[in-house]
Nucleic acid binder design. Sequence first.
RNA 1: GGCGGUAUCGUCUAGGGGACUAGGACACAGCCCUCUCAAGGCUGGAACACGGGUUCGAAUCCCGUUACCGCUACCA
Length: 519
Amino acid sequence: GFESLSLRFEGPPQPRRAFVLRSMPSPADMSVPTPRLRFAPSPTGYLHVGGARTALFNWLYARKYGGQFLLRIEDTDKARSTEESTRAIFEGLEWLGLTWEEDVVYQGANLELHRADAQRMLDNGTAYRCFCTQAELAERRAEAEARKDSFKYDRRCDRLPADEVARRVAAGAPFTVRFRVPEGTTSWDDLVHDEIAFPNKDIEDFIVLRTDGTPIYNLAVVSDDIAMRITVVMRGDDHISNTPKQIMLYRALGEEPPTFAHLPMIHGLDGKKLSKRHGATAVGDYQHLGILPSAMLNFLALLGWSPGNDIEVMTQAQMIELFDTHGLQKKAAIFDPKKLEWMNGQHLSLIPAGELVARVVPGMEAAGLATAAELEQRRDWFVALLDLLKVRARTIDDVVRQAQPYFRGKITYDPDAVAKQWKDRVGTAEILVQARQTLAEVGKWEPVAMEEALRVLAERMGFGEKAGRVFQPLRVALTGLMASPGIFDVLLILGRDRSLSRIDDAVAFLRASSGAPAA
RNA sequence: GGCGGUAUCGUCUAGGGGACUAGGACACAGCCCUCUCAAGGCUGGAACACGGGUUCGAAUCCCGUUACCGCUACCA
């Protein structure tokens, strides 16, 4: 249970407890409060894939253990925060289906709370006022550096007599609030890293409140997490060195620190931290590239987590079922777009064509192939088409691209296809004329009958078993392309009239160009 | 520099002292299926960073080295 995840801070040595690391509370254990987690991005850009994955793991944990997943926008850096990126974060999370509970918390709105917490620490003696200016500090830092010493605040303001402090405050001297780091070691049992310990002597008395009365990140986070009653903090492992400071703050405020889980980073193909240089890094980019949210989630989940067996393709429900912090990885993962594409192909072929319609329609409209209303009118036909295409596509964009020949009245012939399959113009025209006649005579426009008739034709034309000699030129006539779904499916989806007229068009084309030298 | 973190195929990973001549997946190559393209099936190459311990036995535990990453702000 959680009681084994004790934190050692300062004070008398405690007996070492049974070491049950990375263990989850069982849902049946009622002594364990329901977990509350949050995703706390700062709105200074789009929703990054790394952020999305952090959100996903928080969400997965909450769903798995019956807890709450909350959202907090850390907008205290007014200069860099924008409403636009706040919106991008909402949109990204919504697209992924990572829904949060309760109202969004805006950190900037909690200024009074942060100040009150700083005041509490001043009152209970865990923090003190510091009158050193930034310029003085910078100078001392530079001196230390010149001496090749590492700089640490020397606590001079902590030694100021009380009446001197009072005098300066009364005189209106600006001051920051510094936390007084106690002796000892600060450690915690991280859900992914097991125990991590920091000697307090390596941590300087850090500032928690600026001269303008605004909080420093570490205070704001702790104040807000306390107020939101967060019990599990899952975040990127770039926050590991902030954690001891935050734990000290919890203690100074008389609160029990939450459980921490530090997730590894995501890197680009070159092993460096993922950035714009690596191409698409915003989840919105992938949305527009035709990636399915379920595939994105699945792929992200596998970067830094494994269900512990060979399962890879999972639905959201399966991920929740299988999720366990034991499977969390310590090592940074490299983002491989190739595998994402593969994953998307898997999800594409798994998803029922009917459910795909809504995701494909915008692309169809954008490509000018059909309007949503037209597709709705021929919904059954469109679903049948999607069934043919989805297994061949890796992205939604692929689906749209491949849908093209089934929408345009006239098709254009791919030069490569013409060169390869229509090399002999006269002979091909003859094959197509025969095929047209055969198809026109088929009683019912359905695959089995058409296949039988065309194979008989191939036989009769002397192609023996090589019915492809008929099918391939026919495919070009029907789609203009060298590759397509099965030829009988194409015939069916195109319908009798359009199929026959496309063959006519092809014959006309072949006859018109047969005199000219091959292109 | 100080402190902290990490280290299994090119990439994502399985691995919790013997089941490891290290398993799966992506990518790559070949074959099968086949009207083309996919999908699918089969096959192949490909890894325990290095050095010391502990142990009858180490990918697995400990220490060190190296490499990489993070933090080291009145940024978040």
